[in-house]
Amino acid sequence: MSNINRREFLKILGIGTFMGIGGWSMFEVVGKGEIEAFAEKYKKVPGALQAKRWAMVIDLKKLDQQIINDCTEVCHRIHNVPKILNPKEEIKWIWDEKFKNAFPELKDDYMSSEIKNMHVLVLCNHCENPPCVRVCPTKATFKRKDGIVMMDMHRCIGCRFCMAGCPYGARSFNWRDPKDYIKNENPEFPLRMRGVVEKCTFCYERLDRGLPPACVEASKGAIMYGDITDPNSEIRKILSSNFAIRRKAKLGTKPSVYYLL
């Protein structure tokens, strides 16, 4: 140290700073170029199921306790959804509600208790005009080109604005580490960490492999799905010949999940 005078010291300091700034900008340039070069290297799986807008039709007449249990069980199992019994911290992607709760605006004093307590499977509605996407400050929840409202768990900051925005109660927050509440993990699907919001993703990972959503598969025909923009799709045919309702349709969110009574 003794043979470096102040002048030299400052020189080194200056060069160091300059190198630092230069190095940083180099990193930036290289980084951007590479991303562009990679862009064409990402592809969709050839056999992936595609649609302009995915939608679902749930036939309530065909639902029974067994089907409901099967649907929720398979969904929660393959997606590593923790089983938390405390209703305060419950996490659910698809679950059983009574008709009067799923459709509170249709509740009527003279409605038979049979209808009032009819089972309804509820899940994220994958709205065409999703308020959760509108309010998310980081685009952590976003609408894919095929209409699926997705969650990017890597980006979610856990502000829970989307939970306040969702009028369907479809979103769950990880109030603590979910690991302890998952018994048999599905090794093919990730878990979530504490502090992020999660919900149904329309089984995007199965569609990519050419498979229908897990609940559709487990429902024994009670749940149908397809491209709602395609007039020849199965669900369009059902919708054109049946009376179907959507939850809280007056809110303008345009849900993609229809219910047949």
């Binding site: 998310c136 400050p137 980081t138 979610c156 900051i157 856990g158 502000c159 919001v197």
Partner: peptide, 28 residues
């Protein structure tokens, strides 16, 4: 706001991914 976040370490995502359709963006 900070203590309310589930993932406070990612708070800068609000700046990294500015989202003008979110009111939170304007609030910031």
């Amino acid at each position: 706001i900070f203590v309310d976040l589930g993932q406070p370490m990612r708070v800068l995502n609000v700046l990294l991914h500015p989202t003008p359709n979110s009111v939170m963006f304007y609030d910031m």
